[in-house]
Amino acid sequence: MPEREPTITGYLTLGLLAARDWSAYQLAEQLGRGVAELWPSADRGRYAVLNRLHKAGFVQTRQEHTGKRARTIYSITPEGREALAAWLRTPVRPPSLEFEGMVRVLLSDQGSLDEMRATLARTREQALANREMFARYAAFISATGGTFPERRHLFALANTFMIGHYDHIISWADWAEQQIAEWPDTVTPATTHGDQVREMLAPGRERFQAEQEGAR
């Protein structure tokens, strides 16, 4: 991989600068609007990435003054546009998932049933809050065109995915709470609730069997 190749956060930053020039604060603010839910590391590296892009020649800077205050404004260079366009032509990597609540579910046999219920309840609350946030974005874009009206058709695609994503988490949390409602603890159902476990696994098993039959 070339040393100067940007990270995904770098490409996100170049994509923002492809639309208009921004200050570091404005770029960080834009990267925090829904992007952190899609690409968590963007939130952690949104300031440091500008220095790397500048050293690589993908962005340039200028100073703007408001009274006695100066601020640095970043703009994309032709080389930065070329790098972004080249990246968009490369094969996309598979999606990944960072989901602490699910990790806790997987390890719930080391804790109590009440703790597992609390994890599911908190997971639902978080998903409801995020779904509401993306619903507000949808209303804002519909009413005003959004911050990037020239990209609103693309934001509509992403917004629909994110709302569906949180719909799925909410539905799963509700379903999981129903499944564990009669469990005595987080350990014994592995042996005492075999029929229930097989029923939970049935949709995946049946899909696999159907795919195998379709491939013949």
Rank of each mutant, 00 (worst) to 15 (best):
T72K: 12
V49K: 01
E37Q: 13
I163F: 04
P78Y: 00
T191V: 14
Y166F: 12
Q126K: 06
H193P: 15
F148L: 10
Q26T: 08
T9L: 09
W87E: 10
E64H: 09
L31V: 00
R69G: 01
T90S: 15
L157R: 15
I169K: 15
G164M: 01
F161Y: 05
G67N: 07
W87V: 02
N130I: 13
M133P: 04
R216S: 03
W22G: 13
A190E: 07
M116Q: 06
L154S: 12
P189R: 05
E100H: 06
T13K: 13
L154P: 07
V35F: 11
R104I: 05
F161D: 12
E213V: 04
I141H: 05
A70M: 01
E64W: 08
A181R: 00
Q63D: 08
Q196V: 04
A202V: 09
A28P: 00
F155E: 11
G80T: 08
R44M: 11
A18Q: 05
F161Q: 02
M200E: 06
R205N: 00
P189Q: 15
H168A: 10
G57K: 00
P94I: 01
E211I: 02
F208Q: 02
A210K: 14
G194T: 06
T123V: 05
G57H: 06
Y11P: 08
V92Q: 08
Y47D: 11
W22I: 14
R152I: 09
R81Y: 07
L113I: 00
A190I: 07
A85K: 02
D167Q: 07
A19G: 11
L84K: 04
E115Y: 05
A127N: 04
T186R: 03
Y166D: 12
P94M: 01
G194S: 09
G34R: 03
L53F: 07
R152P: 14
Q212R: 13
N130Q: 12
D109C: 14
T13F: 08
A86P: 01
F134G: 11
V197L: 11
G194A: 12
T119W: 04
D167N: 04
I73R: 05
A202S: 13
A156G: 09
I163W: 06
R122L: 12
E79C: 14
